[in-house]
């Protein structure tokens, strides 16, 4: 059924259809967001399981709270910031606090996800905001197939789950059947113990490229995907840092509050290591094509290589 399995939006839709075929408690809450994930096939098959609420995200989340407390598993999907900022309090007080099984799918994650829409539709704070709220599971899959797998893997998790998706123009990183490892890091490339490159989401491809270029220059990097930001696989990350002693985090997100912050906290409290955080340096983005935005805002392959070199110097 997938017309573009690399699209995270289609990955969500197809995952939802898979779940709905198997269980009747799965419902889709739309805040006029049905079309952004091309969910017409879901609507045609299960019209009674689509709750269309119009452009009203706070209502969408609070209604989802009521649905979840009445035995359903609502999947609410719209732009990431309209959930995590406009409806942040509803996510916290009416879903997180009562530990309800609402699934939030936030589109346009990062500059890559928001790209030409500009700042109002580029969400670079979603992960950081949710990381402060107790009880949220935060998943940031790298491509459409991984979103699909994350949907299947997370359906029975207690409490709320947030899945970050993009614009639908992502690159394919994994074969469709690759399971999504909830709560575990994944070492994608292992060229040595000189430096660890930690990333998630749509920057994974360029981090792999940077690691390969570093290898050509005699620098052995590990590419580590941290697709579950919360709960963080602290043991897995510590095992990596134990070997490399230094790390660069690369995330299409502000460096404040996201993976970079989580790793900094871990380093400060548990395992000394050198760190450089790449991502948005406390600034907003702008309109542009996805790849050129990442390049401009400090996440180019050169930026990653430079940061790796610098952090190795810091370590030594």
């Amino acid at each position: 059924m997938s017309e573009q399995v690399d699209s995270t939006r289609i990955g969500f839709r197809d995952g939802l259809i898979d779940l709905a075929e198997k269980r009747d408690d799965v419902v889709f809450v739309s805040t006029d967001s049905l079309m952004i994930v091309k969910a017409e096939p879901f609507l045609e098959r299960w019209p009674e399981r689509v709750i269309e609420l119009g452009i009203a995200e706070q209502n969408g989340v609070a209604v989802s709270s009521g649905l979840a407390s009445s035995g359903l598993i609502p999947y609410i999907c719209t732009y990431a910031g309209f959930l995590t900022m406009r409806a942040c309090e509803q996510m916290r007080t009416f879903v997180g606090y009562p530990k309800l099984k609402v699934r939030f799918i936030g589109a346009n994650g990062g500059l890559y996800g928001g790209n030409r829409e500009g700042v109002s539709h580029q969400f670079i704070e979603d992960v950081g905001l949710l990381r402060t709220i107790p009880g949220f599971t935060i998943l940031c899959p790298a491509d459409g197939g991984q979103v699909h797998q994350a949907m299947l893997a997370s359906v029975d998790i207690d409490g709320p789950v947030y899945i970050r998706i993009g614009s639908g123009k992502e690159k394919k990183m994994f074969s469709d059947s690759t399971p999504f490892p909830i709560g575990k890091i994944r070492i994608i490339e292992d060229f040595g113990n000189d430096v660890a490159l930690l990333t998630y989401g749509f920057t994974l491809g360029r981090v792999i490229e940077a690691a390969r270029s570093l290898k050509e220059r005699g620098i052995g990097a590990k590419v580590v995907e941290v697709a579950t930001i919360k709960p963080l696989d602290t043991e897995g990350i510590k095992a990596v840092l134990d070997k490399t002693g230094c790390v660069v985090t690369i995330e299409d997100h502000t460096i404040i509050g996201g993976l970079g912050s989580a790793v900094a906290e871990l380093i400060a409290e548990e395992i000394p290591a050198s760190l450089v955080r790449l991502g948005l340096q406390d600034v907003y983005g702008e309109s542009g094509f996805p790849e050129e935005l990442l390049d401009k805002y400090g996440m180019s392959i050169d930026d990653i290589m430079t940061a790796a070199t610098q952090v190795i110097v810091k370590k030594n």
Partner: peptide
Amino acid sequence: SLGNGVSVGLGMALAARIR
């Protein structure tokens, strides 16, 4: 937190319809 109860109740009411 004020203002949320009608939405929560609406979700509960819709769940009855769906289930």
